[in-house]
Design a protein around this nucleic acid. Structure first.
Lengths: 333, 333
DNA sequence: CTGTTAGCGCTTTCAC
DNA sequence: GTGAAAGCGCTAACAG
């Protein structure tokens, strides 16, 4: 049944029915009521494609995850998607998810047109990528990135500032009396977290020993090896901060394998607060990102751009320390 | 630019352009070539909504996850979505993801129309729910469920048969010499896994002691408590099979807290093979589901229904044991 | 407040 | 192999 047949059924014009269905004010309350009731009764549904054609709106938000970065692992995608779906859904938008396993079709000819895009930027995402994804800048976009906006001014940004949380972690360890703190990185040389470590240590009055900073990689094994390397030094660190929880799990494993206890002999703090963090033994103290908040902020910004033609904005969201049991007071010699 | 302007630009009719773009055979190779090149050159994109209106196709598959079941946790959603997206994408379909946090709008008036639906069934999903979700049976649907198809015959099914994997786990423990095996369940009384345990034990020549089967719940703490309860019995089990990896993590914690080692004093096997499983100490032996396979199977079945009007099918996919380090030989007394 | 009507941009007959 | 033209089902502008 289409709107013409449906309107005839009610002895109304298609215009009136359309207005009632669209909740327009120009229609009388009784008529609206009638239309809504009868639509329910006869199971009439507007053809969404016709509606989209004529209005030029798609009622669709695309969440584009070009690939899974270590900051936004699988689990985050779901949390993020949920937040985006909820926020966008409240304004009548559906969610089109693209997990970019196939980078090639960024510019696919026939991909679903969206009213707006939430793009999770990978470290290697370029302004040109955004240009392509947004159909040459025609689709509003908000980019989730770390730590800085990209060089593409039409986009809104939600930037993850991981430094506050890392700072908290370092401070926590300093407060617990640790003076030699190891760093196990995720193997990205230009990492701004790595770059910030000396300063963050200095802020706690601690020296920075380059020997104690290792770029390990992404796997648990790599974290384990790096931690072993650190702990076997003549003057080993009493605490380790790992760039990811997976690396931290490896570090704990390393400690055990050397006959050390956590946090008795060595403290470990991770980063990301993935599910693992709470289940590991001992439960991991770690730096957390509030992903739902990121998703909500991004989507709200996007909706503002779409519905109110708001200019692009930039938001910054920090991270914070979640204290569990893997960090404790430094061991007395 | 629309197809009319674009056609005029090439001195062709809209019909010819349309045929070329749709890869119809009635168009000459040269013309097709020309159209494709020029479309690229001028950046012409067909309006997808007009196309969908006139063809009645949506080029869209919806993945509907009414809620997160313990079998299909967050992590699985991403793997599943990725598999569905890849399979459907290969046939030109996009993915509409709905994470059903808001059960109420199952029958939302204006939700995006899809050509087919992959529905992850929750334990409480009813045939009526499917009826609603499929727009009164008008949209082809494949249901992912465990362990049996629902009573709704128009749907295709991909059923997860968890028993083979659980059987493998039990057998493994039996082979390792364990004769008293505890069971920590996820708190669903009617669980078919729980129901199968006595039979699976019997197949290995082992007796079933109801005292050793506890329905714990879903959290690590609940798993820990249940395991403590088991391990403090006068004649405790030497191995524990936990219905989920989270519970298994709790069981390991329980063992440690009682001064027992894993797998030295007590073996633990989990279920689900979530990320945690590999990172826990010791790495968890667990039962795994091949989620990408589930997604691919479901989507293939769906595409067959959509594109070839195939009749509904039912597939069964089993589970298998992933051996890591948490299960070992029974301790000699 | 309601009815009438002209498109939205495309695909698809039907002629040629 | 190509062109002309009739819709697909809806919204919105205009008239009343």
């Amino acid at each position: 049944m289409n709107i013409v047949e449906f309107a005839r059924l009610l002895n109304l014009s298609t215009g009136t029915v359309s207005r009632a269905l669209n909740d327009r004010r120009e229609v009388s309350p009784q008529t609206r009521q009638l239309v809504l009731e009868k639509a329910e009764e006869f199971g009439f549904r507007r053809n969404a494609n016709a509606r989209r054609l004529v209005t030029g709106k798609n009622f669709l938000i695309r969440l584009e995850c070009p690939h899974i970065t270590h900051v936004l692992s699988d689990r985050y995608v779901v949390e993020l998607a949920r937040a985006v779906e909820e926020t966008a859904g409240a304004s009548g938008y559906d969610l089109h998810l693209r997990l970019g396993t196939r980078r090639r079709d960024f510019g696919a000819t026939d991909t679903l047109p969206a009213d707006g895009i939430v793009l999770v930027a990978a470290p290697e995402t370029t302004p040109e990528d955004i240009e392509t994804i947004t159909n040459n800048g025609r689709t509003p976009v908000v980019v989730i990135c770390e730590p800085q906006p990209l060089d593409y001014v039409q986009a809104s940004y939600v930037c993850l500032d991981t430094i506050p949380g890392v700072g908290e972690a370092i401070r926590k360890l300093a407060e617990l009396g640790h003076r030699r703190i190891g760093y196990v990185g995720s193997g990205r040389p230009g990492s701004h977290v790595r770059a910030a470590i000396p300063r963050l240590l200095a802020e706690c009055g601690l020296p920075f020993d380059p020997e104690l900073a290792i770029e390990a990689g992404v796997t648990q094994e790599q974290g384990c090896q790096a931690a072993v390397q650190l702990l076997e030094k003549p003057d080993p660190p009493t605490a380790i901060f790992a760039r990811t929880d997976v690396l931290a799990a490896g570090a704990i494993q390393a400690a055990y394998s050397l006959g050390l206890t956590v946090p008795g002999d060595v403290s470990v703090i991770g980063h990301d607060n993935i599910e693992v963090a709470a289940l590991v033994n001992p439960p991991l103290t770690t730096v957390a990102i509030d992903i739902p908040q990121v998703g909500t902020a991004a989507t709200s910004a996007l909706l503002a751009m779409i519905d109110q033609q708001s200019p692009p904005t930039t938001q910054r969201l920090g991270t914070h320390l979640v204290v569990r049991a893997s960090a404790g007071p430094v061991k007395q010699k």
